[in-house]
């Protein structure tokens, strides 16, 4: 059980690390948000799951945290992206955006 929990937490932290790496490597704000959101969401979920394996009695609160993360994290990212778009920031290498074939 301990090993399963530890591996889940390790997996989660690796995703979090990849998310951070993505923030460095990606070329513009939108791609960075993408890397940030996805990696942190699954990373946090995996860490929470790992904790749930360690301390099975905590599952109700962990489930609640997971639900809140799942609901709020994408909204926050969309809001950031929307703000960036509204300030006129165009995506990297995309002179032909806005629905052009």
């Amino acid at each position: 059980m301990q090993i399963i929990g530890a591996s889940l937490i390790l997996l989660g932290t690796s995703f979090l690390f990849l998310g951070a790496l993505g923030l460095f490597r990606m070329p513009d704000v939108y791609n960075r948000i993408q890397a940030g959101t996805k990696a942190t969401t699954l990373g946090s979920l995996s860490v929470l799951l790992g904790i749930a394996v360690y301390y099975p009695l905590w599952w109700p609160k962990l489930l609640l945290i997971a639900l809140f993360i799942l609901l709020t994290s994408p909204i926050a990212s969309s809001t950031l992206a929307r703000a960036a778009y509204k300030t006129g920031l165009r995506p990297y290498r995309a002179a032909l955006d806005k629905g052009e074939g």
């Binding site: 490597r25 070329p27 939108y30 990297y92 290498r93 032909l96 955006d97």
Partner: peptide
């Protein structure tokens, strides 16, 4: 870094 981003 294989990306080809666009807004669609």
């Amino acid at each position: 870094l294989p990306i080809n981003p666009a807004i669609v």
